[in-house]
């Protein structure tokens, strides 16, 4: 953990209770219980296909829970009216950045400001410049998403996600597809934003380097258990976990029966 007592007195902003998550009749995750505290960087970790993205989709209201509850700032996501209020307090950075290809970066970032505020266009322009500068994209206002690199798309997506100063930011695999330098830069940006703005961040990833850099606390999901198999400080889990899969994951050990090296 980056700071042991950083969030000792923080209150939970997200509460997940007895959550069963899945699609249709298929249960992907069950009996999930955890809290995310205000101002912390909370990482959801796990191997491919363990349900990380499924959990994220449930946390941002894209999929309704099969059972159990998710509350954000004490508002239950199952209520349609609550969902709109909650989403107004959240920003989401999708894996690809999800920028609108026909709009420039400035127009992408301006969109939520134009939709949700009554500010004059000149003030929106100023805010857009500030947001893009915050993610080190000053000067790229007129570029189309197709004209910039993957890392820049992620940062532009982050600027758009932060346009309305959300209280909570969700990241879906922020390091995916980035080179080590861009990935490290994005990690530093996440830390900087968390430190300066105090935004609560929930990150779905399986990049261990990122986890050690940014995470305050993690939960680890497992496909076979269909739930959480470890929770806490990543460094502590790597050294002390009793679960063999957790140790294998943190030590980057391949499964012998899959490699033929048994």
């Amino acid at each position: 953990m980056r700071s042991d007592s950083k969030h000792a007195t923080a209150k939970p902003v997200i509460k997940v209770r007895d959550l069963v998550a899945g699609y249709g009749e298929e249960v992907i995750l069950k009996d999930l219980n955890f809290d995310v505290l205000e101002g912390e960087i909370f990482v959801i970790l796990g191997g491919s296909g363990c349900g990380k993205s499924t959990l994220l989709k449930h946390l941002i209201g894209l999929c309704p829970p099969m059972a159990g509850s998710i509350t954000i700032n004490d508002l239950a996501l199952t209520d349609e009216q609550n969902l709109q209020r909650v989403l107004r307090q959240c920003g989401i950075l999708f894996q690809s950045g999800a920028l609108f290809g026909s709009m420039t970066l400035a127009e992408n970032v301006a969109l939520p400001l134009q939709e949700y505020t009554d500010l004059p266009q000149t003030h929106i322009d100023t805010l857009v410049r500030m947001k893009l500068a915050l993610v080190n994209l000053a000067g790229y206002e007129h570029h189309l998403p197709a004209e910039i690199s993957g890392g820049m798309k992620k940062r532009a997506g982050l600027a758009r996600a932060m346009a309305l100063n959300p209280q909570i930011l969700f990241f879906d695999e922020p390091s995916a597809g980035l080179d080590p330098i861009s990935s490290a830069e994005l990690d530093q940006l996440i830390l900087h934003l968390n430190k300066t703005l105090g935004t609560t961040m929930i990150i779905v990833t399986h990049e261990l380097d990122s986890i050690y850099t940014v995470a305050d606390r993690i939960i680890m999901l497992d496909k076979r258990a269909k739930g959480i198999i470890a929770a806490g400080d990543p460094a502590h889990l790597r050294e002390n976990s009793q679960n063999s899969y957790v140790r294998q994951f943190f030590n980057r050990e391949p499964s012998p029966h899959k490699t033929g090296l048994e």
Binding site: T117, L119, T122, H123, I124, T126, L127, K131, N165
Partner: peptide
């Protein structure tokens, strides 16, 4: 906040 900063920028301009 940054909206306030944008307001002050608007004043100056």
């Amino acid at each position: 906040d940054d909206f306030g900063v944008a307001v002050l920028v608007g004043f100056v301009t």
